[in-house]
Design a protein around this nucleic acid. Structure first.
Length: 352
DNA sequence: AAAAGAACCAACCGCCTTAAG
DNA sequence: TCTTAAGGCGGTTGGTTCTTT
């Protein structure tokens, strides 16, 4: 196939930044006639540009429904969440942010969000903790910061519950550190997703005697409690570890741990919006733990399939995936709190 | 105040997919 | 079924603006 003539090969056509006059001509023409065939448009409108350039200018800048200005925290979190599931499908991501273009989101990702994830010790491609040695320290800092956040709950919440949650969060932080250490050491394939939490499971048996106690300060009973607390019937709601956002009203009772309902603050706030309800963590500042979600297409697909089939988390362990870890799977299944309709919709959109 | 470096972002390039003939 | 034009998409570039020294 000869292929069509590239825009740039056409003689005498202007390139580079658009002038206000060119913008005005393009907008006037499209308002009067619609864009029709983009290739024919510049000729009809009297613009010395190729059709592709006109289309890009219109869709990325001149379109009247474009929302300009800084991205909100909600939008940032949404982009991160969507990117974790969709990867660099900027157009698909843009489809869930009304008024934002794929180009704008792509630029925002490359200039801001990628760096933020890196600063948090996360791989911006996989959204997983980076496992290089230096990052162990940054992860630890981040995790410990997260546990401190929980301690703030004592100001506004039942003391016993808050202390328990803080203790659990600390244990989680330690476990994630342990997981990273194991990852670096090459032991990255637990036989089940909660295996690492199971003090009697195969993973722990591979540790040197006294390692948990001496290095991480964990003892068997603590581990057992943690394991029991977070096993299948009681998936952790890591979003509960978000710090109170100013006057945030905390859930009552033990709702934070039951893992069965989603905090309304995590849902997109705009009522009547026909777009997907993608989980928000609008109150999560970027110095706290992000949602741990997988970004690899294979894993994402796998997780989506699991959501569809209501597979229990510990059944989704993929022996062939040497990078799969407990916390990553927890992160994946945090999304179990999101309605099936959301995932169905997402799958439909991506597969159609 | 000037220079250098970093950050930002509009626009381009080239590949892929789709639809029409 | 094949060819071709057109649109769409993601990666990249390069000019401009901002920040630091």
């Amino acid at each position: 196939m000869m292929g069509r003539t590239p825009c740039s090969d056409e003689n005498g056509l202007k390139k580079g930044p658009w002038t206000p006059e060119e913008d005005r001509i393009l907008v006037d023409y499209i308002q009067k006639h619609g864009h029709g065939s983009w290739r024919a448009l510049p000729k009809h409108a009297g613009l010395n540009r190729c059709g592709k350039s006109c289309r890009l200018r219109w869709t990325n800048y001149l379109r009247p429904d474009i929302k300009r200005g800084k991205f909100s925290e909600e939008e940032e979190q949404l982009i991160i969440n969507l990117h974790a599931v969709l990867g660099n499908k900027w157009s698909a991501i843009a489809g869930h942010l009304p008024g934002r273009t794929d180009n704008e989101i792509k630029n925002f990702w490359n200039t801001h969000l990628k760096k933020k994830l890196l600063q948090m010790g996360l791989d911006p491609v996989t959204h997983r903790p980076r496992s290089d040695h230096l990052n162990l320290l940054s992860n630890l800092q981040q995790l410990l910061a997260a546990t401190n956040i929980v301690s703030n709950l004592t100001n506004t919440w039942d003391t016993n519950n808050a202390l328990r949650l803080q203790s659990d969060a600390t244990q989680l932080a330690k476990l994630q550190l342990l997981q990273n250490i194991l990852h670096v050491l090459g032991d990255t394939t637990p036989t089940s997703n909660l295996d690492l939490l199971n003090p009697f499971g195969p993973s722990s048996s591979s540790l040197p005697d006294g390692f948990l106690n001496e290095v991480l300060g964990l003892n068997q009973s603590k581990l057992q409690n943690l394991y029991n607390g977070y096993s299948a019937q009681n998936q952790p709601n890591l979003q509960s570890f978000e710090p109170p956002h100013q006057q945030q009203v905390l859930p009552t009772g033990n709702q934070h741990m039951d893992g069965g309902s989603i905090d309304s603050s995590c849902m997109k706030p705009e009522k009547g919006d026909e777009q997907l309800d993608v989980p928000y963590s609008s109150s999560t500042p970027f110095n706290s733990l992000p949602n741990l979600v997988s970004a690899s297409p294979e894993c994402s697909t796998h997780v989506l399939m699991q959501m569809e089939n209501k597979v229990m988390p510990n059944e989704c362990s993929d022996p062939s995936s040497s990078t799969s870890t407990n916390f990553e799977m927890w992160g994946d299944f945090m999304y179990e709190e999101v309605s099936d309709a959301y995932w169905k919709d997402l799958i439909d959109k991506e597969t159609n």
